[in-house]
C-alpha cells in the first residue's frame, strides 16, 4: 500500500498549487510594498509651492507625526481623495504636507485654488528626484511618518474613507502616543493597515 502512495504525489502537488492560485486571486500583483516601511524617511529640502523663496525640509518635522502626500494637478486619481484631505485639514487631526510631483507650479497653485488646499505646506519636486528617493511609482501616494522621522506606512493610490478610518487614523493615534526619545524594539502595527 505504502508503495502506491507515490501515485498520489501529482495530485498532492496539484492541490498545493491550486491553494496558492486561490490565494492569488485576492492579491494584487501590481501593488509593490514600500521598502521604506520602518526606515528613516529620505531627507529632502525643497522650495515651497506657495512661496518659492522659502524652503522646507522633512527634518523640520522631527518630533511630530505627519503625512506626506504625493500629488499633482495632472493626476486624475488625486481628485478622488482630495475632498477627504480637505476635510481632514478642517478637522485638524493630523498635519498633511504635499509633495507636488513633476508638476508645473503655476498649474499646481491654480489646482489648489480650485479644489481647496489641504496642505500645511506643499513643496515642489519639479524633476521628480525626491519622488524617486521615496520610491514613488504611482500618484497619489501617502506616507505616514512618525516623530522620529521613520516611515511607518505608505498608502498607494487614493485614500478612501475606509482606509482613513481603518488604517490611517488608528495608526496616527498609536504614533502620537510614542515617545520620540525611545527607540522601540518593535514597531507597533495597526490591523487595518495590513
Amino acid at each position: 500500500m505504502s508503495k502506491n502512495i507515490r501515485y498520489l504525489v501529482p495530485l498532492i502537488i496539484f492541490i498545493v498549487v491550486a491553494a496558492f492560485l486561490y490565494r492569488g486571486l485576492s492579491l494584487n500583483p501590481r501593488e509593490v510594498p514600500s521598502p521604506f516601511i520602518n526606515k528613516p524617511a529620505p531627507d529632502f529640502t525643497l522650495q515651497k509651492l506657495e512661496n518659492m523663496g522659502e524652503q522646507f525640509s522633512n527634518k523640520d518635522m522631527l518630533g511630530k507625526v505627519w503625512l506626506l502626500n504625493v500629488w499633482a494637478s495632472w493626476c486624475v486619481a488625486c481628485r478622488q481623495e482630495h475632498p477627504l484631505l480637505v476635510q481632514m485639514r478642517r478637522r485638524g487631526e493630523i498635519p498633511i504636507y504635499g509633495l507636488n510631483y513633476k508638476d508645473a507650479p503655476s498649474q499646481a497653485r491654480q489646482w489648489l485654488k480650485q479644489h481647496g488646499d489641504p496642505y500645511e505646506i506643499s513643496v515642489v519636486d519639479f524633476q521628480g528626484n525626491v519622488g524617486i528617493d521615496y520610491g514613488v511609482y504611482g500618484v497619489p501616494e501617502t506616507f505616514i511618518i512618525d516623530k522620529r522621522g521613520i516611515i511607518r506606512h505608505k498608502v498607494i493610490g487614493p485614500i478612501s474613507t475606509n482606509i482613513l478610518n481603518e488604517c490611517v487614523m488608528p495608526l496616527v493615534k498609536v504614533l502620537e502616543q510614542e515617545d520620540p526619545q525611545v527607540t522601540p524594539t518593535e514597531y507597533q502595527r495597526v490591523e487595518g493597515c495590513a
Binding site: V32, P33, S34, P35, F36, I132, D133, Y134, G135, Y137
Partner: peptide, 8 residues
C-alpha cells in the same frame, strides 16, 4: 533601485 522600490 532596490533600496527605493524593493526587489520587485
Amino acid at each position: 533601485m532596490v533600496q527605493r522600490y524593493g526587489d520587485f
